[in-house]
Design a protein around this nucleic acid. Structure first.
Lengths: 109, 109
DNA sequence: CCGATGCCCCTCGCTTTACGATGCCCCTAT
DNA sequence: ATAGGGGCATCGTAAAGCGAGGGGCATCGG
């Protein structure tokens, strides 16, 4: 994977992932990796700052919880209503992006 | 347009644009902007360093020419055979990227 | 009982890269 | 001669993903 390729699209991926249900860090990384057949292998140094950004913007909400099977408390993130709105906006923005790229490189309109 | 959205995809756009014929800076900016209905409005500070990168990698070749209608000589860039190969590779990489994103955000596979 | 291991969360510094501003050059027009 | 415009180039800035490192808590093995 190319790191630069991900810039500007990470927030969309995170919001979309949390749209399918609350998760904590490790789960997000695993799920994204699974959903992309291993193409996106997000690192912790990428994920946590991004989550903090999104939380500061009010799009997601993090809360420490202790899992049933014990272990250290994990920080579970949930998509807020505002975040759901933002997700829709980001989907549209991504759509405009892909259309624009197709306009240049050709291929199915 | 979001600047970050373009990161990692600019080279593809430039190679694809030059694949349709040699051009100089101003033309590239105008053509990309036209092909994307104004979505990508590249700036000079973005374009020229990118062109230099691509030339240093041997993907394109720039040469000063004087246009028929006079004026200062312009630097016309041409896609090299190596660049054509690279364009194919970049198209595939972009395709993998979009497939991966769709895998996360859902939508038509 | 105690150290080792394994997750999980967080942060710092680095690198890459698009962008805005600025400047120079050459040519044309007034 | 002077002003203007198009084209090329560069410098400093900012954003963001990444790698490395560290701390906390729980479980496991000796």
């Amino acid at each position: 994977m190319d790191a630069q390729q991900l810039k500007g699209h990470l927030d969309l991926l995170l919001l979309a992932t949390l749209d399918t249900g609350p998760r904590y860090g490790g789960q997000i990384i695993a799920d994204v990796q699974a959903s992309t057949d291993g193409y996106f292998s997000m690192r912790e140094g990428t994920l946590y700052p991004a989550l903090h950004r999104l939380e500061k913007q009010g799009f997601i909400h993090g809360e420490f919880q202790t899992l049933p099977r014990g272990g250290s408390p994990v920080k579970v993130y949930t998509l807020t209503p505002t975040g759901k709105t933002e997700l829709t906006a980001q989907r549209e923005k991504y759509d405009r992006f892909t259309r624009a790229v197709r306009g240049v490189i050709g291929g199915p309109a």
